[in-house]
Design a protein around this nucleic acid. Structure first.
Lengths: 252, 252
DNA sequence: TCCTCAGTAATTGTCCTACAAATTTGAAAA
DNA sequence: TTTTCAAATTTGTAGGACAATTACTGAGGA
């Protein structure tokens, strides 16, 4: 079966703000990113609605609907005569797909967030792998195996991330737990960050691929214990690299 | 120190939709609950904006802003000439505090969700306890201990839930991981469901209290391994009860 | 100088109307 | 039966008016 396409696993280029394409979506994205990037620090007041109308070139209707969406995600809070203030970070819906996606992968400020996300992965993913070993369907097992084997450094970074993401996302889905499955957004963000922040060396890539295949085979064989252990080992290694990366990013 | 107030741990009666109080918030809550309760099944089309204007007695502006917020949480999707359809359940932001809160604790339909949430708790709470044993501040350890000891069946259900919630929420906060901490919404929802669906017997309550205090003392002593183990044991027991409850709820 | 209090101004909240854009529907034609 | 095209319908955007709330200002008094 050598005729299988190399670039099989595509990155989800289309992001999924469930808002319809249009001015409101664009405005939400624009403001959401600016806030997540720290352009407006905690407690800062956003420009008035009128000013946003002028600067963004949309109607007040659009500005208001966008602001309401951001309120719903906990990023800002509005009050009459006061304006729109940026909420303290604790109040943000950090697990919201959009909020996760809006963090700037290239910003050192968000390195801390990715460190926490990596810790979370270390908690969830071994269990997800164990559940997947039991619950995965035939086709899911195939996808996981194929994705693991598709991690070829030769194919370019985009293809690698695509396969890597598909591997982890499918395991979460195969766990059979829908809430667990939603954490794939987190994994995706962590991946973008780590790929953006560091180039892995070819030997590291080779190890990564072997580890992924090992996990996939354990899941395929239905061995929950083995799958959990291998996933944990892989992520521990991952976390060690992430911590080193975060430390170097923060000290700059 | 017997003069400490019994009803010390209050339930968070005020819900925290970060939307300002007003017509928009009310409309979001109204529609969000109806959708989460299954009044509009997947793929169903919501009433037109005009009809909502009439039936809810608010302006179209308000209806539209509310709908946009719900779009942002993945509950619905809008299109010109088509209306607002309810998205498939997979697309909902199941970890959004509001979405979690909107599930009807008394509906048997949502029992499945709470089963999944209970599984999730079993995954992350033992680790949170272990982290808390290491990272908790002095006052956090005190709060955890006090909350565990405040689980008195005599004080009434509301007070019990309050103490129970404070116990688990403080542990998550003390873990030092902000994303982990946000899962306290999940715990709160599970708690409301289980307390609403079943009355625990006094002996069960006594066991529950002893278990909580055991975890709290392990955290207080800084023994991460012990804390993890005790939390897991407690939750395994909890899950057994939850599964029994879900089974009986579903077969009705 | 500092405090109190009432008035004023500023900002978001709600309502309304009008029109644009897109897409389903249905009828007409090949 | 299939294709094409027009019409009707529903959400999307724009913009204006006023209400409600509250931060700010300044006058007056202690």
């Amino acid at each position: 079966m050598d005729n299988k396409k190399r670039n099989f696993f595509e990155l989800p280029d289309k992001v999924l703000t469930s808002l319809p394409t249009g001015a409101v979506k664009d405005t939400v994205e624009h403001l959401g990113k600016k806030i997540a990037h720290g352009d407006y620090p905690t407690g800062a007041v956003l420009p008035r609605e009128d000013e946003l109308v002028d600067s963004l070139g949309v109607s007040r209707t659009v500005v208001r609907e966008a602001i309401k969406v951001l309120c719903g995600k906990g990023l800002i809070r509005t009050a009459r005569r006061y304006g729109s203030r940026v909420c303290p970070f604790d109040d943000w819906n950090l697990l919201d797909p959009d909020v996760i996606r809006w963090h700037d992968p290239k910003s050192p400020q968000t390195a801390r967030i990715y460190a926490e996300a990596t810790d979370l992965r270390l908690i969830f993913e071994p269990e997800a792998a164990a559940l997947a070993a039991v619950n995965a369907s035939r086709s899911q097992r195939d996808t996981i195996l194929a994705a693991a084997r598709a991690i070829h450094p030769l194919d370019g970074q985009s293809s690698m991330i695509g396969a890597d993401y598909m591997f982890h996302a499918t395991i979460l889905q195969a766990s059979g737990n829908q809430m667990l499955s939603q954490l794939q957004n987190l994994i995706y963000a962590v991946m973008l960050f780590s790929y953006a922040a560091s180039q892995r060396t070819p030997p590291e890539e080779k190890v990564a691929r072997r580890n992924h295949v090992g996990v996939a085979e354990a899941i395929d064989s239905g061995d929950a214990e083995l799958a959990r252990g291998r996933m944990r080992d892989m992520l521990v290694l991952n976390k060690a690299m992430a911590d080193k990366l975060v430390a170097s990013t923060l000290q700059e």
